[in-house]
Design a protein around this nucleic acid. Structure first.
Length: 508
RNA sequence: GGAGCGUUGGUCAAGGGGUUAAGACACCUCCCUUUCACGGAGGAAUCACGGGUUCGAUUCCCGUACGCUCUACCA
């Protein structure tokens, strides 16, 4: 019988949630939903020195915004908790001890200074980063080189020590990656990774294996940067006797900087002027705010869609996918092997498409808040929706609505006179004078009637419509942009239209 | 230095032994609109290089180059 699919996203709460992290969440989520499985959020907070207040809540909030919520997490609970590794501290030691007993791991008493010394001593041009490996360990202070009595007394004295895995000196470790296929490594090339730190906390290497086992994870997705340490994890699964339960691995391609090379980092976003984090992140130490996609005006649907196709596509020409479609179509086999450079222009295109596609009601509230922040209070909700509907084609970001729609609620204070004045004359002034009078007595106020009167009057005065539309636009909008002028007039109302014409006439 | 992984236009990418090598973003030209967009029509790639295998390779194999990741008591 097939095991029930259980996947996990296991971030370290050290700061803002990176784009790549969200994509890993997404792939986990899609895979879980597609297989009727369970998506788990596990917090990997084993490094106390890197603890950042608020980072965990922030991650949960990001998942909530993206609507990629876990089924089990520190917040949602579940039967395999706790879901914070710091709260599982006691469970790891026994496994480390088991490995020591079995001879597959050992105690090491080397101090950080001694490790530095070792690296300095063995460092050569050929070997710039000497490893604590099967050769070097013979010259260090550990339970392999010390006598049993020495080890016993060091331990009983409470000497700080770590537990390191004893990597075989010549073993081929291979496994099948769901994205890359067969991958193999020689065990001698990997160092004796620390499993349990001197403070009693496990390192990632031990924790990921123990927790994936205990939490019955069936498929483990993570970034490609983990590939080189995969043999350690594979060996640990074997040594602990859990080989049959080992999850299937999938190492995801990295998201790269748009210029140059390398992994995309927060710094690149700052440098190139685009967000890297899902939502605004405030560093609790410096109070420095890093802009997020949400605050910049992205729709979560667009953000998720954009991330989904950054490294994956279903083989068709389709690019816009709803979450339901993604759940249906997603497949690991079609995930790319190589990294993709992040393109903010394309990301904005996705958002534009989603703004056009999504019902205005789904983002109305957010835009309303943006308006409030700009001093415009919306009183007529139905008018507001009609306005958004009318201008959404020209909004790439939610924040664009402020510029594209403010004039519907607030008369422009300054008019683009330069676009009108050169061609302005008495006849045109007279036209608008007559027009506003005709408007005054107009009973029906709608686009068709406004346009009809406008054209009729123009014909009477023998002026070309085109010559009149631009000034009219400047009167109503203040600048050269926006939807059809007659639609604007219809929406802002008769009185307001006339007021704006009268005011503009004093300026032209 | 070593190991692993990768390499189709500026970017995302489809395809995969015989094709005019899709599509999208960005860019340029034009049409539409006497606003700004939307929309529409066009423009640009011998698939990193060198060897094989083959009647034939961008597609398979091997090298080379280049890139990335890792090489911490960080994840």
């Amino acid at each position: 019988m097939e095991k029930k699919v259980r996947v996990r996203f296991a971030p370290s709460p050290t700061g803002g949630l990176h784009l790549g992290g969200v994509r890993t969440v997404l792939y986990n989520y899609l895979f879980a939903k597609q297989h009727g499985g369970t998506f788990i959020l596990r917090i990997e907070d084993t490094d106390q020195t890197r603890y950042v207040a608020g980072a965990e809540e922030y991650i949960q909030d990001c998942l909530k915004w993206c609507d990629l919520q876990p089924d089990e997490s520190p917040l949602h609970g579940g039967e395999h908790g706790p879901y914070r590794q710091s709260e599982r501290k006691e469970t790891y030691r026994q496994y480390a001890e088991q490995l020591v007993k079995q001879g597959q791991a050992y105690y090491a008493f080397d101090t950080p200074a001694e490790l530095d010394e070792m690296r300095a001593k063995f460092k050569t041009e050929e070997n710039p980063s000497p490893q604590y490996n099967y050769v070097i360990r013979q010259q260090m202070r550990n339970s392999l080189t010390l006598t049993a009595d020495e080890v016993k007394s060091l331990l009983s004295e409470g000497t700080p020590h770590v537990v390191r895995v004893k990597m075989p000196d010549n073993d081929m470790v291979s496994f099948t990656d769901m994205i890359r296929g067969e991958v193999s490594f020689n065990s001698s090339l990997t160092d004796d990774k620390v499993l349990l730190k001197a403070d009693g906390m496990p390192t990632y290497h031990l924790a990921v294996v123990v927790d994936d086992y205990l939490m019955k994870i069936t498929h483990a997705f993570r970034g490609e940067e983990w590939l080189p340490s995969a043999p350690v994890h594979i060996l640990l699964w074997k040594y602990l006797g859990w080989s049959d339960d080992m999850p299937q691995w999938a190492h995801l391609p990295l998201i790269m900087k748009p210029d140059g090379h390398g992994k995309l980092s927060k710094r690149d976003g700052d440098r190139l002027g685009f967000p890297v984090f899902a939502m605004n992140w405030t560093d609790p130490r410096t109070n420095e705010i890093t802009k997020g996609f949400r605050e910049l005006g992205f729709l979560p649907e667009a953000f998720v869609n954009m991330l989904a196709v950054l490294g994956w596509n279903d083989g068709t020409e389709q690019e816009i996918f709803s979450i339901e479609e993604l759940i249906e179509r997603f497949s690991l086999e079609k995930v790319h092997k190589s990294g993709a450079k992040f393109d903010f222009e394309k990301a904005k295109w996705f958002n534009h498409e989603w703004i056009k596609k999504a019902p205005v009601s789904s983002y109305k509230l957010q835009v309303e808040r943006l308006f409030e922040a700009n001093g415009i209070i919306i009183e007529d909700e139905s008018k507001f929706e009609r306005v958004l509907e009318l201008v959404k084609d020209r909004c790439t970001l939610l924040t664009d609505f402020v510029h594209q729609a403010s004039f519907f609620f607030k008369a422009p204070r300054t008019l683009d006179l330069a676009s009108v004045k050169p061609k302005w004359n008495e006849d045109k002034a007279m036209f608008f004078d007559i027009l506003s009078e005709k408007f005054t007595v107009l009973e029906e106020w709608n686009t068709a009637d406004i346009e009809a009167i406008f054209k009729q009057t123009a014909a009477e005065k023998n002026i070309k419509i085109g010559e009149l539309q631009l000034p009219f636009r400047i009167m109503l909008v203040g600048e050269k942009f926006g939807p059809a002028v007659f639609d604007i007039a219809a929406l802002i109302g008769k009185e307001e239209t006339i007021n704006r014409i009268r005011f503009a006439l004093t300026q032209f």
